[in-house]
């Protein structure tokens, strides 16, 4: 019986020449991505698992609520950056199917953002709404934090295929461009809460800027072609 995958390698029937071809055919890329997805899922869950272990073994900092807030925030931010890195990574590696992990990364970023917000509301503020209300109205970094969360939530809720259909591809894409805004507001949130040493927010913001730049360069190059 003829191998159905064989016709994907029309120009590379031998094993040796198949290795030279880059990017690999879509079907191969899809297979790679599908296989690595469970591992990626586990990887995204590790910060949570490690934190739970630290809670269990009393290894959180002396102010555990602050520690939990910072950890969840840091991982939400990193995963949002990872989500935004997928498209540039597609350009660079020419592996277009990489885009299939983007939704999972984005949902994990939102997941850690939910934990971050939940820890702030329940553990930090003890659901004292008068204080939370005052915080939201008075503190710029809380305002941008809340903005980020609203954006990420609306993107997470409309991340399904069903919503792509309901909104139509164009509208869906327009809505999901809000992720760039979320990246910027996350950076601001970080900058505004740091007391004096801006090294870390600076580094993260530079990474974000380079991800944006990669997109711009790519689009310009394509327009010129």
């Amino acid at each position: 019986m003829e191998n159905p995958a064989a016709d994907l390698f029309l120009h590379a029937p031998t094993r040796q020449r198949r290795k030279l071809r880059w990017p690999p055919p879509a079907a191969v890329q899809v297979r790679w991505v599908t296989r690595s997805k469970p591992w990626l899922f586990l990887f995204c869950l590790t910060p949570l698992l490690l934190t739970l272990w630290d809670v269990y073994s009393h290894q959180l900092a002396a102010d555990p609520i602050k520690d939990l807030t910072l950890r969840s925030g840091r991982w939400g931010l990193r995963l949002l950056w990872a989500t935004l890195a997928i498209t540039p990574l597609c350009y660079i590696t020419k592996l277009r199917s990489l885009v299939r992990v983007r939704r999972m990364l984005g949902l994990f970023a939102w997941f850690y953002a939910c934990l971050h917000l939940g820890i702030y509301l329940v553990l930090d503020q003890g659901l004292a709404w008068q204080f939370i209300g005052a915080d939201i109205s008075k503190r710029p970094y809380i305002v941008v934090g809340a903005t980020t969360f609203t954006i990420l939530s609306s993107l997470a809720l409309t991340s399904t295929q069903g919503w792509v259909r309901r909104l139509g591809g164009k509208n869906w894409q327009r809505l999901h461009r809000l992720v760039y805004v979320a990246g910027i507001t996350t950076s601001l949130h970080f900058f505004w809460l740091v007391k004096s040493d801006i090294t870390r927010p600076m580094v993260y913001t530079l990474v974000l800027a380079s991800l944006f730049l990669a997109r711009i360069l790519h689009h310009n190059a394509r327009r010129q072609r």
């Binding site: 102010d63 609520i65 602050k66 503190r139």
Partner: peptide, 12 residues
């Protein structure tokens, strides 16, 4: 300017 001083968390 960035947080309330009305309350505090006693460590522990």
């Amino acid at each position: 300017p960035r947080w309330s001083q009305a309350r505090e968390r006693r460590i522990g």
